[in-house]
Design a protein around this nucleic acid. Structure first.
Length: 465
RNA sequence: GGCGGCGUGGCCGAGUGGCUUAGGCAAGGGCCUGCAAAGCCCUGUACCCCAGUUCGAUUCUGGGCGCCGCCUCCA
């Protein structure tokens, strides 16, 4: 049984779904108007890990995450740069997927674009009008929040307290400052679509409700997003769904934000690092490991120091992976398959514990701790020549990390033949105990970008990053 | 002002009413090595402050201090 922290309930609850049910999962995705930053990378990683784990647990998942390709910010920036909003959105989206690929974030089954769902959104707004939940003003169609019984569930406040905290609305004609735009009337120079309420474009909240329910149905399991979307965005999605009498998400989950010096990383604050900037200095897999080592709900800092630490930890996984590959490529591998393990290490029990940790609100921090402990044990076993036990335990560790998306463990890059030639010369020098020459040759190899590792089964080279 | 959350050893970060030395990184000492690298072993430094509940609290309750998020677009 998987338990998760449900924002609507403010508690950890069993995830509700039947075992043969396909788990519908919707996460608010990117608004494509610029390069994605480290904060965007985190939410993408969090839900990618969650998705991978649900599948590992044997469940069928259908995952949808939207691409908001029409929005104030896209229009503003396109206008500023004197280009079309379509080309800006298309280019930014391409950049988004490129970055996701580097993070080893799998593309969701569905990546709906807001502009492809305008008709359905209009239908949805018409229904809301018919039911009396919407009203028209000069600048658009608004949702009458006061008519809903459970508005404020995700914000954990009622309408009155929310209303008293609301800043004075620019638009005084709204019935309540909390009422939000379902449809924004056309302004000069903006892209528009025709509708029964005049030319304009849909509001952000409308997009997600319509796309989520058309792709996943009226009753799906999980709705996720960044903690900063909890209110008002998710609240307003829920409001519309409720007004339309659809069940919508059974569970709401929110990931913690990335902070910089204790403050939220955001485009508006300008304190962000783009993913591309990060990848320039660090291994993208190290970022995933950093995310895995903390709780998905906590805020995290992502500094160069922490990334360096994560890279070192990642290197330990890589080293074990290489060690296992060497065993697999060795001549005695077939015999090894048939041999009995000497130690009494119970891998099934470890897997069981791993699963229990992950089932407990996706406790990746404890789960990776278990993997690192096992990693050390595997190395110890291999050091002590219990190859069978060590290999099997090591395999468990590496496969679990791969399942969590820590990929690219084995370098497939061919080694520079020049370096290989020097290695041969160095081996000869070592054999004749000419260590001065051997050391000289070693530094030549290092200049070519490789680290030398002597071992009982030959000299190995490893690329220095 | 309202609501939600957080404060763990040098740094990051799980967790628990009474031995988890959680884990990662860093530091010190060793083993291995021609020297290294990789790996392994050992070691130290904790639970914001003050009360209370309890035989016992880092973990529960109350108060304080500090920090963060949301209440406006934001992953």
């Amino acid at each position: 049984m998987i338990k998760l922290f449900d924002t609507a309930i403010s508690d950890t609850v069993p995830m509700v779904f039947s075992p043969d049910e396909t788990i519908g999962m919707y996460v608010c995705g990117a608004t494509v108007y610029g390069p994605p930053h480290v904060g965007h990378g985190r939410f993408a990683l969090v839900y990618d890990i969650l998705w991978r784990y649900l599948e590992y647990s044997g469940y069928k998942v259908i995952f949808a995450s939207n691409v908001t390709d029409i929005d104030d910010k896209i229009i503003d920036r396109a206008n500023r740069e004197g280009r079309s909003w379509r080309s800006l959105a298309a280019e930014s989206e391409e950049q988004w997927w490129r970055n996701m690929e580097l993070l080893n974030v799998r593309k969701p089954h569905h990546t709906p674009h807001a502009t492809d769902y305008i008709d359905q959104m209009i239908e949805s707004i018409v229904k809301l009008e018919e039911k009396g939940y919407a009203y028209r003003l000069d600048d658009g169609v608004y949702m009458e929040v006061g008519r809903l019984s459970s508005y404020g569930l995700l914000a954990h406040q009622n309408l009155d307290t929310l209303r008293s905290g609301a800043r004075v609305s620019v638009d005084q004609s709204k019935h309540s400052p909390l009422d939000f735009a379902l449809w924004k009337a056309a302004k000069p120079g903006e892209p528009t679509w025709g509708s029964p309420f005049g030319a304009g474009r849909p509001g952000w909240h409308t997009e997600c409700v319509v796309m989520a329910s058309s792709l996943l149905g009226d009753d799906f399991v999980l709705h996720g997003g960044g903690l900063d979307l909890c209110f008002p965005h998710h609240e307003n999605e829920r409001a519309q769904a409720q007004a339309l009498s659809i069940n919508f998400a059974r569970h709401w989950i929110h990931n913690g934000l990335v902070e910089v010096g204790g403050q939220k990383m955001s485009k508006s604050l300008g304190n962000y690092i783009t993913l591309e900037e990060m990848f320039h200095e660090h291994n993208p897999s190290a970022y995933r490991l950093l995310v895995l080592q903390s709780s998905y709900r906590s805020p995290i800092e992502v500094t160069a120091d922490l990334m360096n630490d994560a890279e070192k930890a990642l290197e330990r996984i890589n080293a074990l992976s290489r060690r296992l590959d060497d065993i697999q490529n060795s001549t005695s591998y077939d015999d090894l398959q048939l041999s009995e393990a000497m130690s009494g290490i119970d891998i099934d029990e470890k897997r069981h514990n791993f699963v229990n940790m992950m089932d407990d609100d996706f406790n990746t921090s404890s789960a990776t701790a278990l993997l690192f402990t096992s990693l050390r044990q595997a190395n110890t076993l291999l050091d002590h020549h219990d190859v069978v036990s060590g290999y099997r335990l090591g395999k468990f560790v590496v496969e679990a990390f791969i399942m969590l998306g820590i990929g690219n463990l084995a370098s497939t890059e061919a080694i520079d033949p020049k370096a290989l030639a020097i290695v041969e010369a160095r081996d000869a020098a070592r054999l004749s105990r000419d260590f001065a020459k051997a050391d000289e040759l070693k530094s030549q190899i290092e200049l070519l970008g490789y680290r030398v590792e002597d071992s009982t089964d030959g000299t190995k080279l490893r690329k220095i990053n």
